Amino acid sequence: MIEVYVDGAAQGNPGLSGAGVYIKAKGKQYEYSFPLGSRTSHEAEFIAVIKALDICHKEFPNEILSFRTDSQIVVDAIESGYTKNSLFQPLLTDIIEKGNQFPLYFFKWIASKQNHHADRLAKQAIYKNEKS
């Protein structure tokens, strides 16, 4: 089973944003940081999941994925397969389609202090936005 920690961050809402993905797999750790331009913090959270699914599809196909996020909105939307927010609907659809490529994927809400790796990576991505 692959442990995937995701987080999104934004300076302002919307504002410069980033996604962080921290993966623990087969005794190794992987870190990814993605500048996202101007987004809301919630958009960045959903996009972090999409980025993580893309990575896992390439690096860990056919594995069971255990996602951890400190975004209750993301967990609720994915577990129910629904969001009434029109901005998040295409992102949720993308997550479900990509997630269905794996034998099993599930999400667990964790406290922010347990998600510090992904949070740091998301904030690094904001800094990358600022420098470009």
Rank of each mutant, 00 (worst) to 15 (best):
I2Q: 01
V4K: 01
V4F: 01
Y5H: 01
Y5M: 00
V6H: 05
G8Y: 05
G8H: 04
G8I: 04
A9E: 00
N13M: 01
S17R: 02
G18T: 03
G20M: 08
G20K: 06
G20S: 09
Y22T: 02
K24F: 00
A25Y: 03
K26I: 00
G27N: 00
Y32C: 06
P35M: 04
L36T: 03
L36W: 07
G37M: 09
T40R: 03
S41Y: 05
H42I: 07
A44H: 10
A44M: 08
F46A: 00
I47D: 06
V49C: 06
I50P: 08
K51T: 03
A52M: 02
A52K: 02
L53T: 04
D54Y: 06
K58G: 05
K58E: 13
E63M: 11
I64Y: 11
S66Q: 14
D70G: 10
S71H: 10
S71D: 06
S71M: 12
I73P: 12
V75R: 14
V75E: 11
A77F: 09
A77H: 12
I78W: 12
I78F: 10
I78A: 07
S80Y: 12
S80I: 08
G81L: 09
Y82S: 11
Y82E: 11
N85H: 13
N85F: 10
S86E: 15
S86W: 11
F88G: 08
P90V: 10
L91M: 14
L92I: 07
L92E: 06
T93Y: 15
T93I: 14
T93N: 11
I95P: 07
E97W: 13
E97F: 12
G99T: 07
Y105T: 15
F106L: 14
F107V: 10
K108T: 15
W109Q: 13
A111H: 13
